[in-house]
């Protein structure tokens, strides 16, 4: 458990708002795990990294816990990848650019994901406990990690310029939320990953048609938007390094707009429910900050960057086994 008294330091560590920390503190804990933790290390070019909960954990293919998550050795490919991709911190917005609506049920406006390291690899659940992989899930995850570490990444929807699921919108990129009575639509720099949430399910295409983004239906529980996302057509990646969810799984997002001191944030708690890869239901948390100075979402034309006109096969990535 992370004590609330850690306050700012702990929040900075995890990149979470204060309200999320309250959830963490109140939750069932992994106290013994946290007592065995190594000292916090500094990630290359970025903030401190929370150590994983069990340094002695045995992983497949020689994986061990490196500075920035699992790797095949000190300074392995994953560490290099982190250095290469670590963006500078984005300064806080200038004052006077406006605030979001005071209506807790109105999420519209511009938001920017706070998390960077946790977007690469989800090393623990939101309570600091191990991600509850079952044997099949651990196999898929480790295979993806080893492939990336060795510079031969496996094909993912993102690498192939296909929609990657809502999770790709909730990391450190710009988003714009539009909201009306019947729907919420979220645009981001991540190209085609338009996340349309039906508050009125009648707006959706007929059920049973699987898609990359899945089918998203939302409703309000108090001041929290609850979105159930399922019907994926492929095995998805919940992190850049490959935390998997199978097409049979369901993701449930609890999204709340909260005021954290002088900052507005969206707190997003994702529940992963997937018996194919996990022994139990588990959760991870992310947050997005209010950023009116990033309202004009930048273009990312993924297809231009695919190798040649022969298309998706020229990415250099390796097909992932079906299992």
């Amino acid at each position: 458990m992370i004590p609330v008294s850690l306050g700012f330091a702990a929040r900075h560590l995890l990149g979470l708002p204060a309200a999320a920390m309250l959830v963490l503190a109140a939750a069932p804990s992994a106290a013994q795990d946290s007592q065995r933790r190594e000292p916090v290390l500094s990630a290359p070019g970025g903030g401190p990294v929370p150590p994983p909960p069990d340094p002695n954990e045995v992983r497949a293919s020689g994986l061990w816990i490196g500075r920035a998550g699992f790797s095949t050795g000190p300074g392995g490919g994953l560490d290099k990848e982190l250095i290469r991709n670590n963006p500078p911190l984005t300064p806080t917005p200038a004052p006077g650019l406006g605030a979001p609506s005071n209506d807790a049920h109105d999420l519209s406006g511009s938001w920017y994901g706070d998390q960077f390291l946790p977007a690469f690899e989800i090393m623990t659940d939101m309570y600091g406990a191990k991600v509850p992989f079952n044997e099949a899930g651990r196999k898929v995850m480790d295979r993806r990690l080893v492939a990336m570490d060795q510079g031969k990444p496996l094909m993912s929807p993102s690498i192939l310029c296909r929609p990657s699921g809502p999770d790709a919108l909730l990391v450190r990129i710009t988003t714009r939320f539009y909201q009306s009575k019947d729907r919420i639509d979220i645009f981001s720099t991540a190209g085609h990953d338009l996340w349309s949430i039906a508050l009125n399910p009648a707006l959706l295409p007929p059920a049973g048609q699987k898609s990359y983004m899945g089918r998203s239906i939302g409703h309000w529980e108090g001041d929290t938007l609850v979105v159930v996302n399922n019907d994926f057509k492929t095995r998805r990646w919940l992190s850049f390094r490959g935390t998997p969810i199978s097409p049979a799984g369901t993701l449930t997002y609890h999204i709340s707009k909260i005021r954290d001191g002088d900052q507005w944030v969206l707190q997003v708690i994702t529940t992963v429910d997937d018996v194919t890869y996990y022994t139990r239901r588990w959760k991870f948390a992310r947050s997005l900050s209010w950023r009116p100075d990033l309202a004009l979402v930048d273009e990312f034309d993924c297809e231009t960057q695919v190798g040649s006109s022969s298309g998706a096969q020229d990415t250099g990535a390796v097909p992932e086994p079906e299992d």
């Binding site: 929807p157 097409p247 097909p319 992932e320 079906e322």
Partner: peptide, 8 residues
């Protein structure tokens, strides 16, 4: 055509 991505 559809890419080579696992469907389970």
């Amino acid at each position: 055509g559809k890419p080579t991505l696992p469907t389970k």
